[in-house]
Each structure stands twice: as C-alpha cells, then as structure tokens.
C-alpha cells in the first residue's frame, strides 16, 4: 500500500467524525468558531501522532492483558504535554478550550486507532495513519466551527463577512446549534454520497445493459 493511501483513509473514506462518528464530545463542544476547531484538531493530531507512534514502537513489549492501561498512560502523557504547552504559549485558546484539552485522553479516536491499528502495524504505517486521522478530524472540526461561526457571528476566522443588516443566529453558538449543525452536515454528506453512488450505479448498470445487449 502506498503511503498516500494510509493518509487518505482518515481524510475521507474512514473519516473519524463524519464516517465513523467517534470523538463526538470535543467535536460538538468546541466548534463555536473556526479557529477553535483548528486548535482542537491540531492538539488531537499531535496526541494521535505521538501515542500511535509510541504504541506501535512498543507493541511487542506491552503485554496483551494490560494493554489498555498501558495505552491510557501513553495517551495521558502526550495530553499533559499538549495541556501544559498550550497553557504556556496560547493561553487565550487554552482558556476557551479549557476542560476539553485534558478530555483528549478519553477521545475514542485515539484509543480506537491504538487498539485497531497502531498495536498491529509497524511504526511508519502507524505514523501515517495517525497523520491522516488527525487531519481528517481537524478539517471536520474546522468545517463545523466555520459554519457555526458564520451563522452565529457572521464572521469566519474572526473576519467579519456580513453587513450590519445580518442578524446573528445566536442559537448556532449555543449547545443546540452544535447538535443541529452536525446533524445537517451529516445528512448532507449522506445525500451527496448516495447521489454519487446512484450516478455510479446507473453508469455501471448502463454499461452492463450494453454488455448484455452485445452478448
């Protein structure tokens, strides 16, 4: 398998947020602005790369029976690193993301990749998989954050896009907005995928019909 394939899986076909639907708590909680989505995504990306690489490197040493506690210790270590680095250098973002940074420990994406992939694969594959999954999570969070920021503030990445006539939809920033935006985006993706599958299906059936005619 080419290296690009390892990364691409996380970006679309097995996207953790829109396809597998794991790691929902930070996805819905912090995406009140696009920049928060980017920050949360990159923090998770870092933890994911660190823990996946480390767990893959240690996969022959960690005993099967106590693997879950071992994974938790590795993951919690990297989360603590992110927490302290953010508190030191990006204190504004750290205040906004607050509780959800230590909660990366229990983000199912990280444990899921450790259990399903990193514990079986060599280090380079685990690393690339972590990059793909982390970037997939980041773009999903940025998209949701962008949508909610646009409707809630009328801006994108802090840049005002709408005129004074626009009344912000405050509900987009409230908790219900998180659920509703995610539901609508997921529904849209399902509809697009179904349409693409239908288009592919009709072209294939046309081909096969032609084939049967010929036959």
């Amino acid at each position: 398998m080419k290296w690009w394939e390892e990364i691409r899986r996380g970006l679309w076909s097995e996207n953790p947020t829109f396809r597998i639907m794991i790691g929902m708590c930070p996805t819905l909680a912090v995406t009140t602005a696009a920049i928060n989505g980017v920050a949360m995504g990159l923090s998770t990306l870092f933890v994911l790369i660190g823990s996946s690489t480390m767990i893959s490197a240690l996969r022959r040493i960690i005993p099967e029976k106590v693997r879950i506690p071992c994974y938790i210790v590795v993951i919690a270590t990297f989360v603590t690193v992110v927490d302290l680095v953010m508190a030191a250098f990006f204190s504004d973002l750290h205040r906004v993301l607050g509780l959800y940074i230590p909660l990366i420990v229990v983000n199912c994406i990280i444990m899921g990749r450790a259990e399903a992939y990193a514990s079986r694969m060599p280090v380079p594959n685990a690393f690339l998989d972590a990059v793909g999954m982390g970037l997939g999570f980041t773009w999903a969070l940025t998209l949701l954050g962008g949508i909610r920021e646009f409707f809630g503030f009328g801006s994108l990445f802090g840049v005002k896009l709408t005129g004074s006539a626009f009344t912000p939809w405050v509900v987009a920033l409230l908790p219900p907005g998180g659920f509703l935006t995610m539901g609508v985006v997921l529904g849209t993706i399902n509809a697009l995928t179904a349409r693409r599958a239908a288009a592919a299906g009709s072209c294939c059936s046309a081909v096969s019909a032609k084939g049967s005619e010929r036959g």
Binding site: M21, P176, F179, G183, V184
Partner: peptide, 10 residues
C-alpha cells in the same frame, strides 16, 4: 445518526 443528532439538538 443525522436524525438522532437533530433530535438531540431539539
């Protein structure tokens, strides 16, 4: 999932 999320939103 989408309808579950929208329900949760309401």
């Amino acid at each position: 999932a989408p309808i579950a999320l929208i329900t949760a939103g309401l």
